[in-house]
Write a protein that binds this DNA or RNA. Sequence first.
DNA 1: GTGGTCTAGACCACG
DNA 2: GTGGTCTAGACCACA
Lengths: 129, 129, 129, 129
Amino acid sequence: MFELDLRSRAPVYEQLVEKIKELIINNVLKPDQQLPAVRVLASELTINPNTIQKAYRELEHRGYIYSVPGKGSFVKPAVPGTNDARLQALENELGKIISEMLYLGVPPQEIITMLKKLLAKKEGGKLDD
Amino acid sequence: MFELDLRSRAPVYEQLVEKIKELIINNVLKPDQQLPAVRVLASELTINPNTIQKAYRELEHRGYIYSVPGKGSFVKPAVPGTNDARLQALENELGKIISEMLYLGVPPQEIITMLKKLLAKKEGGKLDD
Amino acid sequence: MFELDLRSRAPVYEQLVEKIKELIINNVLKPDQQLPAVRVLASELTINPNTIQKAYRELEHRGYIYSVPGKGSFVKPAVPGTNDARLQALENELGKIISEMLYLGVPPQEIITMLKKLLAKKEGGKLDD
Amino acid sequence: MFELDLRSRAPVYEQLVEKIKELIINNVLKPDQQLPAVRVLASELTINPNTIQKAYRELEHRGYIYSVPGKGSFVKPAVPGTNDARLQALENELGKIISEMLYLGVPPQEIITMLKKLLAKKEGGKLDD
DNA sequence: GTGGTCTAGACCACG
DNA sequence: GTGGTCTAGACCACA
């Protein structure tokens, strides 16, 4: 399903959170789709089930999935307009990235072009579903 | 000079790295300008000099500053075209941010507008220097 | 009759208990009225009859209903003055809620107002029956 | 510091969360005061440190404390006006409690009296600090 | 010394 | 079979 870097400084469970979050955001994992069972994913990644569970719980706290004991874990459908705080944080990050690009000598026009290209790709990817 | 959040779960030295990196990127600290001496900064921020040391070492490792033994640490001038790896990483991050914004329901057009607004602000700030 | 949230992390039988308890408390289910048969309710809610059984057993244990073997389950009439323990527990819960409201900055006067408003609504609802 | 019921159906870590939350809400644990170290509390309660940590992390997620690695865990000062959702939930719970009290035969006037008495006690307790 | 991560392995409730 | 809880015990980064 995906790869983990066990030697990374980032905790394994955090890497898991990021990877799964990405799959959800990119619509690879669809709303209400079931995630791999804790034990299954654990054995696939040769990682302790507790670590997977920690990742799942963190994803639940962050609002990306929901877990039903005895049933499984599922992708939580996003409700637009309920994450203003998150959006603000994203705009903030965006600002930092732009600053660094400018610092590295990328012309503003090129940044805009880059953004448009990325948007086209993402939108295209979405239409593929 | 700047503020640290000792309550944050982010390590102090990491916060330092981020803050100084920001000052360099935003051209507040100019190329070849000398950074505050370790002991001075330590007493100003009332934190352990070892922590400052670690932050400076990290900044040097990441290519934002250089150290001259016996003299101190200085801002490393950015040379356009020599940081393709970093640029690639930034584009990657940009992609993730865009994905999440789309996921949260922000229309593509609005993202472009947001970017342009941010660019205008940054460029304006730079011209002020 | 009512809705269950199969996505909730609360066990289905617990949700059932709460819902039915609410119906009894709010006098929608009257004293000595018969509850739906286990199998009927099970097919209506499309859940396992065993789950309904468990909920009914729990409700009986808590004193809200009584079962007549071969006949079915019925709402147990409340006899004022026989539930001091439950009342004490409720006062306890009330205390906790008040504490948290005060902690969150709600002025005492506003809490009293809120209570009176709620009481008016409940009493009104009861008169409607 | 407090007691746990190891035979209860409620998970130990949840009991811990509730108890500590109560201490914070009732101002027994003051803002920015340090909580007992994970290992210390674990040995005091003869419970596994992991369980304590799980409770602490949950409290952090719910906004009652903050943990700084290497430093300790501390009570997070409450910021009034930032918990509308929580307040709504509390009002909801309040409604249920009132319903049940009415069901048990408590006259509305008595409920108001009870509330006022509780408020007086809580306020008095706060003034004691 | 602090919180944090991770493993191995056991047991439980739910449906 | 599912998620959840708990223990015992090891190791790490930070200040």
